[in-house]
């Protein structure tokens, strides 16, 4: 099954979850998502998601200038973002629970 299709629906949740731990800039968020096991996540998708969440008011940003490397625009969860994360997480758990049960049940019957 193509995980990139699945990822599309839950990338918002994944990004919000990563930012709950610690503020991060685009490249950093991509790296943390991949380290967590979402190896197929696309750079452009993550940046686009961050941008959309920011414009939706769920994230705030601040720029950390750097002498050596590029400027870093850090994204951080605000109240709206935490609220969104809570609701999304609830939806996800219910959905995942239903689907797991369905899949396990179907597998048992098949077995």
């Amino acid at each position: 099954m193509d995980t990139s299709q699945l990822l599309k629906g839950v990338l918002d949740l994944a990004v919000l979850a990563v930012l709950r731990e610690e503020d991060g800039y685009g490249y950093d968020v991509v790296r943390r998502l991949r380290a967590a096991g979402l190896s197929e996540v696309g750079d452009a998708s993550v940046y686009g998601t961050l941008r959309r969440l920011y414009h939706a008011g769920a994230l705030t940003t601040y720029v950390v200038p750097s002498e050596e490397g590029p400027h870093r625009k850090y994204y951080s969860l605000n109240g709206t973002g935490r609220d969104l994360l809570r609701r999304s997480a609830k939806t996800w758990r219910e959905f995942a629970g239903v689907l797991t049960e369905l899949v396990d049940h179907a597998t048992k019957e098949a077995a």
Binding site: L11, G42, D43, A44, S45, V46, Y47, G48, T49, R51, R52
Partner: peptide, 17 residues
Amino acid sequence: LGAPAAYAAELRAAAGL
């Protein structure tokens, strides 16, 4: 990262542009 056109399309879709 993929071709620039694909990158742009992916960005566009994810950002809701």
